[in-house]
Nucleic acid binder design. Structure first.
Lengths: 199, 199
DNA sequence: ACCTAATTTGAGTATACACTCAAATTAGAG
DNA sequence: CTCTAATTTGAGTGTATACTCAAATTAGGT
């Protein structure tokens, strides 16, 4: 196992990091993700995370400042994953965006579940995560609205209303899916798409 | 303060109950409701509930078997409150049902917030509350679908799809409102209603 | 192989949490 | 006012939780 000594590895400064530590960190993040997806915040105790990652608490704290840090990292992962490839920025159609959302649910069910939880679980006392999610939502509304303006020539104002409605419907169907993963989310999402932002 | 000695008071057997205890119970439920609405499950610790209700833990446990019991009672209250007056059963229009949903958010914001949380906060490990909420949702879909069949003559199958879509949209807009209570939920809910179950 | 840095372990610490229980106090009726 | 039942208090208990820290072990380079 070779120590990685150059900065910039995966966008992070890893000066003086051993491969072993890097792999442990990944195991901890995987464990956190799966526990959050399975049982929400309650399930993601430090003990559960460490048991699943097969490390002791001391190792955890060598790599993360707090349990909260690991959780926020996974939540950010989920929020980042819901956005389509940024290289398509400015050229998406609404159908592309809806398709990407559907693909997210189909290909990343754990992250999708965490995403749904993050939409509601941010609490008033925790203004950081609540505000971050709200900003994320607003950015998504803008992106959908821009695509609608391009697709249909709707005014920006009308497009924003339609985008809010479409995203509301998609997110509500996502909550429905989280309640019962047998629910045919993709089919319903497509039907919802037909109702907003198509004039 | 008179002891209430007859059965049937508010649908509960209160044999041998003093007014003082009954009032304490109400204060505890009020405290639980407001804490849940403000900060979710995390905020509703026993200490916080007792402090807000101005009782000690021993009083709490004289009246409730567990903290869980108090919380479930408030969640049930929220779920019950979202349903329109049962005396209208079988005669609601979809517009009545949507109007009732909007009214719920406007008149009972605390319960509305708890309702939104309950839709996602039930975890796989807690099959009881998750199943209960799913059943509640299915009942609502049926009720909306029945109203659509009566309103428009849609087939039962089509009505069920449209009901699922409309409720998805309404619930998603509710999540959006929970994220930022400045969001104009009522206006958007009305716009969403226009898109589903109107043919 | 040696040496140093990184990582991991094991054994705690402190605190918050849900809950208990017997004594004290209050409520309610006659 | 007396008496009994109901309620409340105060002082705990036990446990789970997040986190610490020094010693032991492993990783990595020469």
């Amino acid at each position: 196992m070779g120590a990685i000594r150059w900065p910039g590895y995966e966008g992070e400064a890893h000066v003086g990091r051993y491969q072993a530590g890097i792999e442990t960190e990944a195991r901890i993040i995987d464990a956190t993700r799966s526990l959050l997806a399975e049982g929400g915040l309650e399930a993601a105790t430090l003990k559960a995370i460490c048991d699943r990652a097969e490390v002791r608490a001391g190792s955890f704290y060598n790599l993360f400042g707090s349990k909260e840090e690991a959780i926020l990292q996974v939540v950010r992962e989920a929020i980042d994953a819901v956005d389509p490839d940024p290289t398509h920025a400015g050229t998406d159609t609404v159908d592309d965006l809806v398709a990407a959302y559907i693909r997210f649910f189909e290909e990343e069910p754990q992250l999708a579940r965490i995403y749904v939880l993050a939409g509601v679980a941010g609490e008033p006392s925790d203004n950081g995560s609540r505000r971050r999610f709200l900003r994320h939502h607003e950015t998504r509304v803008e992106r959908f609205a821009d695509a609608m303006v391009r697709d249909t020539g709707l005014t920006e104002q009308d497009a924003e209303v339609q985008a809010e409605l479409l995203l509301g419907a998609l997110d509500g169907l996502a909550v429905r899916w989280a309640l019962d993963t047998e629910f045919a989310f993709a089919a319903y999402a497509k039907l919802a798409r037909e109702r907003f932002g198509t004039e």
